[in-house]
Nucleic acid binder design. Structure first.
Lengths: 219, 219
DNA sequence: CCAGGTACCTAACATACGTTAGGCAGGCGC
DNA sequence: GCGCCTGCCTAACGTATGTTAGGTACCTGG
């Protein structure tokens, strides 16, 4: 058998064994990296023994590949939903802010699934990486298209290195996983504001920073 | 014995055994992370056997702690030198550019030593991290002071989250290690330009981006 | 010429890892 | 009531790791 699908736990009943393994695997993968995430520790924190993992997954690689997949699909869904909801918003700054916020929410609030992509992807075995790469590439392409559209609309300046600009923006968002604490005094919305403002007008005094409208329900 | 200092190899003669271990350790640490950097592989690529490492270092932790220390002191020295050289430059943008460039040069050109801080520091054992943390904190403080000075000079807008702004700038520089190839068509100077421009004026069309003067020898 | 330090090597140790084979209890269909 | 599938456990396998003890060749100072 190759895998063993289980419906994501409905709210109310406790997570199945497979789901617990994924949750614990995501947490450990994000916190300790690939090599230091051992099946014995995953099993222990999920309330079972190491050998039992092989009833649900073929291997460590397959379990953690699934974790990375879920993390990528989650942030992709969040992206799509934010784009859809803000599609008819005139102000391009507000649109960008909505999508940045969606990305950050997935990164910090969807368990540790999406966070594993920032912290553990690079050092995962090649087989694992190549199993998730298409999803990652597709997601990065979405961001590239979004930025290209902003250039086409005249909101962003044209650049001859659009890829570099996209990577800079993604780096700004993803790197925050190493230092931002969503339970602290600054909210995810504050973080989104600081990133969008920096990306939009920079940090200089000369450009007057526009008030970033946080309330996405305003007319 | 606790360590076994050796003078850094003078150009011309071949590196000592200890130096080779540090070089190889830095390369493997930057490329594969802490857990996947094994002493046997370090030894093999340095042309000796695993047990022999213990003539030069007390443990794996001590070897890799030393690698991280060297990486941090290298980028700190580069920072200080750039600040010193550009101290009497009037234009704050040019000063910032010089320091950003120095940081990126250390990151991409001083072997893989400095790069280990971006890729491997977070997942190193706590003892290793705490052994290098003072150096890291001191370096980050230098950046904070530099940005604070730019605010005091009126070049940067004031912010009530100066720490966040500093982290954003450092993230922009450090994250490039994951995708920038200094041997490609874009140079390190191009990368410095793109980062400084984004940090300075953002990516919008409204602010006209000033020509970043790359030639630091201009009057 | 020879004592001692330098710079390695060999061989093994305890431990931890991913993985596998086989077993066992409980629930469900027939 | 019996068979079967689900979901887990036990015990072990081979392999790899950090580390250590003891040895060996070479160079240098006296």
């Amino acid at each position: 058998m190759t895998s063993r699908p289980t419906a994501p736990t409905s709210p109310g009943d406790e997570p199945s064994g497979r789901q617990r393994l994924l949750d614990v695997g995501a947490a450990l993968l994000a916190e300790h990296g690939y090599a230091d995430t051992t099946l014995r520790q995953v099993a222990r924190e999920a309330g079972m023994k190491a050998g039992s993992i092989y009833y649900h997954f073929d291997s460590k690689d397959q379990l953690l590949t699934e974790v990375l997949r879920l993390g990528m699909t989650a942030v992709t869904d969040a992206f799509d939903e934010a784009v859809g909801h803000s599609r008819d918003t005139a102000d391009p700054l507000v649109r960008l802010h909505a999508v940045v916020q969606a990305h950050l929410r997935a990164l910090f609030e969807f368990g540790p699934y999406t966070a594993t992509h920032v912290t553990a992807f690079h050092y995962a075995p090649k087989d694992v990486r190549s199993g998730v790469l298409p999803l990652r590439d597709a997601y990065e392409a979405k961001w590239q298209n979004l930025l290209d559209d902003l250039v086409a609309d005249g909101a962003l300046a044209a650049t001859n290195t659009p890829r570099v600009r996209r990577l800079h923006l993604l780096d700004l968002m993803n790197s925050a996983i190493h230092w931002f604490d969503p339970t602290g005094t600054e909210t995810i919305d504050d973080l989104a504001n600081s990133i969008v403002e920096l990306f939009w007008v920079g940090a200089t005094n000369s450009a007057h920073s526009p008030a970033l409208n946080t309330d996405r329900n305003s007319p």
